[in-house]
Amino acid sequence: MQKELKSVIKQIKRLLSKYYRKYDDRIPYLITVLITAPIVVGGINLFLELTEDLKSEYLVTYDASISEAIASYRTPSLTQYFIYLTDIGNAIGYLIVFSVCTLIFYLVFKNWRYVAQIVLVMVLALSSNLILKQIINRARPEAEHLVTVETLSYPSGHAMMAMAFYGILIYLITQFNISKIWKFLIILLLAVLILSIGISRIYLGVHYPSDIAGGFIAGFIWVVFCVMIFNLMNLFKRDAAT
């Protein structure tokens, strides 16, 4: 990602220097933000469209059919498995995983910046999820709940936080100096975990599929937004040092 952004900025600088002898050095970065912004804007637009359609007939039908299909596979052992998965997406689960990641970042990579980046994404995702739930005010499904829930339904906090937390981890792992095989396996594991946490909420009867979709979209928006900011900050620092 940094290489791509740096290449774009170089091209912009070359173009500007061709037509303008003097220009503000911040302009290339501003243009880069404008180029990458559609990714975030597109995600926001998709989230808003989904939110507007929550009460539409086709989405209600979609939610019901998917929920019934997933619930039809309920077994005692599978229920225990999905309860375990949904617990991973709770506060204690994230605290444990975050603590392990912090130790690895400090002992192996000697870099606290990774910890700060994860914290930023998590704070943004959590605070925005709480706000969105209150604004949209969607009730939980009326189906049987296999776990206790107290908050509102849309967007799913579990899905949003899973995408934000494990999504930024996936990005950070791509930056690590480890073998490609390990990168692939870890990224695949985290991707499956994100999807599984989302499915667990439907299986346990506490979320509609559209809640999960909304949570995934919102979490992804924060990941992309923060990744862009992190890379631009790095490029600013490198430019300042040269």
Rank of each mutant, 00 (worst) to 15 (best):
V60K: 14
T61I: 06
T61L: 09
Y62P: 01
A64G: 00
S65A: 12
S65C: 00
I66F: 08
S67M: 13
S67E: 09
S67V: 07
S67H: 06
E68G: 07
A69D: 04
L85R: 07
G93S: 08
G93F: 07
Y94T: 03
I96F: 13
I96M: 08
F98K: 01
F98E: 00
V100R: 02
T102M: 13
L103R: 00
I104Y: 11
I104W: 00
V108M: 11
V108P: 01
V108D: 08
F109A: 11
N111D: 15
N111G: 08
R113V: 01
R113Y: 05
Y114C: 06
V115I: 15
Q117E: 15
V119G: 08
V119T: 15
V119Y: 13
L120V: 15
V121H: 02
M122L: 12
L124K: 04
S128H: 02
L132R: 06
L132A: 06
K133C: 05
K133V: 02
I136N: 06
I136E: 07
I136K: 12
R138N: 02
R138M: 00
R138L: 00
R140M: 11
E144I: 13
H145A: 10
T148E: 14
V149G: 03
S153I: 07
S153H: 09
S153W: 04
S156G: 05
H158D: 04
H158P: 06
M160I: 03
M160F: 00
M163E: 02
A164P: 03
G167K: 02
G167M: 03
G167E: 04
I168R: 04
L169F: 14
L169H: 04
Y171T: 05
T174E: 05
F176K: 14
F176D: 03
I181D: 10
W182I: 13
W182F: 15
